[in-house]
Design a protein around this nucleic acid. Structure first.
Lengths: 130, 130
DNA sequence: CTGGGTGCAAAGTATTTGCATGAAC
DNA sequence: GTTCATGCAAATACTTTGCACCCAG
């Protein structure tokens, strides 16, 4: 089955590029806000199509599903206070080889998410203490 | 609001202990199969309650949500071939301190999932090649 | 042209909620 | 006894699907 690139599909993909990370809900809201001419069912269908084509992927961060375009391997940082999600680079190869040592299985790749306080929230928290 | 421990809540928690990891669907099926006297809405309500009490948590592995009881920090290994999910131990402290070096944010904890071929599937795959 | 894609509305699923009754503490 | 939890059924998401029409390749 040949996959076509359509206006709507481009809209969905572009929205995810713009947003960086987005839940289905946020993605839909974004598309509506930008007055994009696209129906709900088409959004859902294109999410499925793009997932199947591996142009986007779905990850669970802090208990919520978020979509993102497929990028080079990276980990996520999630601020527990403001909810901000950011990409961070880590040496996945090294971590995988470390983990592989204590593991009888053959590890190929990994997903990582780090949680904590972002720079902004850290400053604000310190400020409160004065 | 005082949280009570009820028969049904115990059933939900126990089922997750027994199963190790389970999607909501599998959990429901398990409870039904064991002829447990519990209604659907109570299952959902207890999942919410247990999550709020942090007695269980929800993680996304290979695109699916799974529930598990809260255990000491561990990572997950997911076999890409058979879907088997297993807990593996890794030195999270070390990984966090490594990640923290290249990051302007304050990292407190992390979630990790490793993907690959489990021991069994590795053997089977090798067998095929002979 | 032709077959995959779209919009709409309707159908499915999954999850939540209101209310009277039952059971922890 | 209170107050929270349960069961049932109804309500509310959220997502998928059937179908006629449309457009990318």
């Amino acid at each position: 089955m040949l996959r076509r690139m359509t206006t709507q599909k481009r809209m969905v993909y572009q929205a995810l590029e713009d947003l960086g990370h987005a839940s289905v809900e946020v993605l839909i809201e974004y598309l509506k806000d930008h007055n994009e001419q696209i129906s709900l069912s088409t959004i859902y269908r294109n999410i499925q199509t793009l997932l199947a084509e591996e142009k986007i992927k779905i990850v669970k961060l802090k208990g919520n599903d978020v979509l993102e375009t497929v990028k080079v391997d990276h980990a996520h940082f999630i601020c527990e206070q403001c909810g901000r999600i950011e990409d961070i680079m880590v040496d996945q190869e090294k971590i995988i080889s470390k983990a592989a040592k204590g593991c009888i299985h053959q590890i190929k790749k990994c997903d990582m998410a780090f949680y904590g306080l972002c720079q902004k929230c850290t400053k604000e928290t310190k400020g409160e203490r004065i």
